[in-house]
Each structure stands twice: as C-alpha cells, then as structure tokens.
C-alpha cells in the first residue's frame, strides 16, 4: 500500500466546505442581525407565554426572557463554533479514512458516517436556537437531542472510534 495521502470523495469535501461557509455566514449574521434576531425571539416568546411560564409580572418575566435569550444566543454561537470545527474535522478524518480504509464498502460507510455526523451535529444548535422561542429551553433541547445531537453525534463518535481502531490495526501490522 502506498504511503501517499488520498483525497476524500469530493462530496465529503463539498459538505465540509459548505459547513464552514455556513459557520462563517452564521457568525456574520449573528453580529449583523443581533437586534433583529433578539427582537424576533422575544416577540415569539411573548406570543407564547404559557410555553415559557410567563406570569405577566415584569420582575418575574424579565428573568425568564433573559435566560431564554441568553440560551438562544448561545445556540447560535455554538452552531458557529461547532460548524467551523466540524468542517475541519470532516476534512481531516475523511482524508484519513480514504487513505487507510481498504475495503470499498467499509471506506464508504466510514466516510458517510464522518461526513453526515460531522455536518449534522452543529445543525442541532441552530435547531435548538430556533426551537427555544417556540417550545422553551428544555423542550427545545430535548427535541434537538433526540433528532440531531444523538443520531449525528453518535454517528460521528462511532465513526471516529472505528477510524481509531483502523489506525491502530495499521500500526500493528507494520
């Protein structure tokens, strides 16, 4: 087997690059539209007082709204950070998989898991942010966990352990 690095499939590279682009665009939008985003989130929360447990007393409600807005902002920030990081992780890990995984099927599954898991996981933070004004912090988190973080994060973790095992195997066979 050659020692040369192999390029991952172009589809995986495209996903990684688009993810990084989304991260940068998301970060820029957070700054540019901070006021509009906050106003939108606050408006949606005030339209659903029962979801957030608002009681109609400013001294009580301000704290609830403030916490939800902080978490809303945190979700956007975490999307920005994770999307940037996972884009690079996809590029690095799929390159390792493309180089070291021999079987076509194994390589394909591994790259698919790394790409889908890496690209999907950050979107959970975006989803969570969007869900907070509509469904509240905890319920929004629960939905994002079950539909995005667990399946995509799980896929990424499985694929990374698999890849680690593969590297150890190659090392042992040298």
């Amino acid at each position: 087997m050659s020692d040369a690095w192999r390029l991952p499939p172009l589809a995986a590279v495209l996903v990684a690059v688009v993810l990084i682009v989304c991260a940068e665009a998301g970060g820029a939008s957070m700054v540019r539209f901070k006021v509009e985003l906050t106003r939108w989130a606050r408006g949606v929360m005030l339209a659903h007082p029962e979801v957030h447990g608002l009681v109609g007393v400013r001294d009580v409600d301000e704290r609830i709204l403030d916490e939800a807005l902080v978490k809303f902002d945190a979700g956007l920030r975490l999307f920005h950070l994770h999307a940037e990081g996972m884009g690079l992780v996809i590029l690095a890990t799929t390159a390792v998989a493309a180089t070291l995984a021999r079987g076509r099927r194994v390589r394909g599954v591994m790259i698919a898991l790394l790409t889908a898991g890496g690209a999907g996981y950050p979107l959970g933070y975006l989803l969570w942010s969007w869900l907070i004004p509509h469904h509240g912090i905890e319920r929004g988190k629960s939905i994002a966990e079950w539909f995005v973080w667990m399946p995509f994060g799980g896929a990424m973790i499985v694929a990374l352990w698999w890849l680690a095992g593969l590297v150890v195997l190659r090392l042992a066979r040298r």
Binding site: Y125, G154, M156
Partner: peptide, 22 residues
C-alpha cells in the same frame, strides 16, 4: 451494537452553555 452503546453519550456530554442571572 457499538452505536447502541455509544450513541446516548453525546446527549449527556454536549454542552449548551450556562446562564448566570443578571
């Protein structure tokens, strides 16, 4: 099998920031 064992971990490990009341 590995997915079943490992998949719940991110739900427990992912971080969503902390809120300090102001």
């Amino acid at each position: 099998l590995l997915a079943f064992v490992v998949a719940p971990a991110p739900a427990l490990a992912h971080h969503v920031g902390t809120y300090t009341p102001q």
